[in-house]
Design a protein around this nucleic acid. Structure first.
Length: 268
DNA sequence: ATGGTTGAGCGTCAA
């Protein structure tokens, strides 16, 4: 059974942090890297700077200023473009591919879910409504694909679903990323055909974060984190799960992202 | 309740 390592990272500007990918590769040795918030239009994608990294197979979808997703792969891939334009916004939050592994194709989805603004109220804050609508659409789309197998879904889903996916469940119940409607929506999407590959290894009573705000003087001491970045797999791949890594050290890299990379190793 | 920081790109907006 060939082993596959898939890493996901909200890089918060690919052009600014392309140099940090060396450190990610050194630490995680991934076969595939999924990036979010690349913030680069396709015509300006930094293919030259990425070339020495050794991920010749790429698919990316970006735009000016914000959003943007990319898949960098050592394994040949075929672009998967059957998914709809979520919420009809054309805003570069999803890219998918079929990885051509020796054991057969693996369908890989890379998502950047809307952050949702500050106020957890649809009427007052359309960004929150967009976020809820986005995860409702994705849930329905995957639920309709009954019997989906050999598939992996990763990304910055901008929701911390479990009580121990945030530093204080009580204090974050009204904070966008951990409100009950978001948690219900994300859980529904997960249950539409996936299992949580990271929580597969870490019991629900243990704190687990992938993001720490820039707005803390000392992120490690205050440790007010949230688990916003996720790796899900279809149930047929669950038996092949081998390990997970949340690269917390990356939060201390020079001029780094507020998210850290997450990596899952599995047999496919 | 508020403020705190960062990126894109030059106004603020988005996070």
């Amino acid at each position: 059974m060939p082993s596959l390592r898939i890493a996901t990272w909200n890089i918060n500007s690919l052009r600014l942090r392309v140099g940090l990918l060396d450190k990610l590769v050194e630490a995680l040795r991934p076969d595939v890297i999924c990036l979010q918030e690349t913030k680069v239009p396709d015509l300006l994608f930094p293919a030259g700077a990425l070339q020495p990294l050794g991920f010749p197979h790429t698919v990316f979808r970006g735009m000016k200023g914000y959003n943007g997703v990319a898949i960098l792969s050592r394994i040949p891939l075929e672009v998967h473009d059957a998914a709809p334009d979520w919420c009809a916004k054309g805003d570069c939050r999803h890219v998918a591919a079929a990885l051509q592994t020796p054991g057969g194709p693996v369908e890989l989805h890379n998502f950047y879910v809307p952050a949702g603004g500050d106020v957890p109220d649809r009427a007052e804050n359309p960004k929150y409504g967009h976020k809820l609508d986005f995860i409702a659409e994705t849930k329905l789309w995957f639920a309709a694909r009954t019997g989906l197998t050999r598939s992996v879904l990763v990304g910055d889903l901008n929701i911390a679903p479990l009580e121990n996916d945030v530093w204080s469940h009580k204090q974050l119940l009204d904070v966008v990323s951990h409100t009950p409607p978001e948690v219900e929506g994300l859980t529904g999407w997960l249950n539409a055909g996936f299992v949580d590959a990271v929580r597969h290894f870490v019991p629900a009573d243990r704190k687990l974060y992938t993001w720490w705000s820039y707005r803390n003087r000392d992120w490690r001491t205050s440790d007010r984190g949230r688990r916003l970045d996720h790796v899900w797999v279809t149930p047929d791949l669950k038996a092949g799960l081998k390990s997970q890594t949340i690269l917390k050290d990356a939060r201390d890299w020079p001029q780094t992202s507020d998210h850290v990379p997450v990596c899952v190793e599995l047999e496919v």
